[in-house]
Amino acid sequence: MRGMDQNLTLERRDGLPDHLRVLLDALPRSGWEAHPNFNGMVQFWLQRHLMFRDVLGRLRTDSETFLDGNVDRVKHARETSRYAGFLLNELHAHHHIEDMHYFPALVGLDARLGEGFELLDADHQALDGHIHALAKTTNGFLHAVNQPGGRDAAGKLHTALTGFESFIDRHLTDEEDLVVPVILKYAPKL
């Protein structure tokens, strides 16, 4: 997003600005499921977001358990590899589908929200860097888990997971707050 206010970057913002919440104000979360346009696609999309949050939360809490010395190194490394690989691959694919299919179909439905879709696109670009950084940190831990520096690598991974969890939650919440009301109001054929 050219000329984007730096306070709106994924790493800095604490929610959507008021002018991008116009549909959310009219269609608050509390009424989404009862809305006649809340369909299987919306439910599936929200469930994917919940799954991302759950898997990331599991990775973080498993990391904490490892750091507390309450889990076998080999088992923890295997689980970390499996869940981190799944999470990062699924996030990448999910964002690709949104960028190529869903967002282009939604962006023109309400001109007031064009900047919001640009914001989400900027988030996806920023998240690509965060995804690669988390993959690198995860791989560093997996290579070091049975080495003398394994505990330090585990601490770095925990820090990376905690930061990533914050970025992902901010992005997913803002994406939901922008996209779901558009779908509910305009009922596009996706």
Rank of each mutant, 00 (worst) to 15 (best):
Phe66Tyr: 15
Ala135Phe: 09
Leu27Phe: 07
Ala111Ser: 13
Tyr186His: 15
Gly114Arg: 11
Leu142Tyr: 04
Gln43Ile: 08
Ala84Val: 07
Arg60Pro: 04
Arg78Thr: 11
Val22Pro: 09
Ser81Val: 00
Asp174Asn: 14
Ile131Phe: 00
Asn146Phe: 01
Leu23Lys: 03
Arg170Ile: 12
Phe103Tyr: 13
Leu142Trp: 07
Glu118Ser: 02
Asp18Thr: 15
Ile97Val: 07
Glu79Ala: 00
Asn7Arg: 12
Trp32Ile: 05
Val179Leu: 07
Met41Cys: 06
Gln147Phe: 01
Gly150Ala: 01
Leu178Cys: 08
Gly15Asp: 06
Gln147Gly: 01
Asp14Asn: 15
Asp18Gln: 09
Ser30Ala: 08
Leu157Arg: 06
Arg12His: 15
Gly150Asn: 04
Asp177Tyr: 12
Glu79Thr: 03
Glu175Phe: 02
Arg2Ala: 09
Ile131Ser: 00
Ala126Val: 13
Pro181Thr: 10
Leu56Asn: 15
Ala126Gly: 13
Leu106Gly: 01
Thr173Arg: 14
Glu175Val: 12
Leu10Gly: 09
Asp68Gln: 14
His19Arg: 04
Leu161Gly: 08
Asp72Glu: 08
Asp121Lys: 13
His95Lys: 05
Pro36Thr: 05
Gly3Gln: 11
Pro17Ile: 10
Arg21Val: 07
Glu118Asn: 07
Thr173Asp: 14
Glu11Asp: 12
Val55Cys: 10
Leu46Thr: 09
Gly3Trp: 09
Leu134Pro: 11
Asn146Tyr: 04
Lys136Gly: 14
Gly149Met: 07
His35Arg: 09
Asp72Phe: 05
Ala93Trp: 13
Gly31His: 02
Asp99Val: 06
Asn7Tyr: 00
Arg82Phe: 00
Leu120Ser: 01
Leu27Gln: 03
Arg151Ala: 00
Pro104Ile: 04
Gly85Leu: 02
Gln43Tyr: 12
Leu109Pro: 14
Gln6Ile: 13
